[in-house]
Simulated assay, not measured.
Amino acid sequence: MTLSDAQIWLVIICLGAGSFLLRLSFLGIIGSRDLPEWLLRHLRYTAVAVMPGMITPMILFPTATGGQFDMVRIGAAVATIAISLWTRNATLTIFGGAGVLFALHFLLPA
């Protein structure tokens, strides 16, 4: 599918306008008002809900292996979960998971 220059610019302008309106709805319209406590409580869990949805496909269907199951990534994911449950420290979890991923690349056969 090939798009003309005018169509590409139309898509860019529409996406920019949509992004602006989405930000305006939070910052411009309700930015100076206090939000209800129940809404603030729900917003705290946004990252917890979004991150697994972004990370899980990269673990189960990694692009580096052409979407094939990869024991290295599964092992690193399990180790990262274990480190997070054990330490309750995000920094140690990130570096520990990265270290396990790096180590498993060398220890497990491809």
Rank of each mutant, 00 (worst) to 15 (best):
T93H: 07
D5A: 15
T93S: 14
I55V: 12
M58S: 09
S4I: 02
G18S: 11
L107W: 08
I30R: 13
L15P: 00
R88H: 14
R23Y: 09
D5K: 15
Q7M: 11
V48T: 12
I12C: 06
V72A: 05
G96D: 08
V78C: 05
L104M: 09
A98T: 06
T87D: 02
S4Q: 11
I29V: 15
L3N: 11
R33A: 10
F69D: 02
L27G: 05
A103L: 15
I83T: 01
R88N: 12
L92P: 00
A110T: 14
T65V: 07
G96P: 03
Q7S: 10
A98W: 12
A76D: 02
L27E: 14
L107H: 01
L27W: 11
L22F: 14
M71H: 10
M54R: 03
L43Q: 04
V11E: 04
I94G: 06
H42E: 12
T46Y: 06
G97E: 02
T87P: 00
I13G: 06
Q7A: 14
L104P: 00
M54D: 03
I83P: 00
A47H: 03
C14A: 15
N89E: 02
A47C: 05
L3T: 10
M71G: 01
D34E: 15
Q7H: 08
G53V: 04
S4L: 03
L43N: 05
L107F: 07
M71T: 03
P36K: 10
I29R: 10
L92K: 01
H105G: 05
Y45N: 09
L92E: 00
G16C: 07
P57A: 02
A49Q: 04
I94C: 05
W38C: 00
P109M: 01
H105I: 15
C14Y: 07
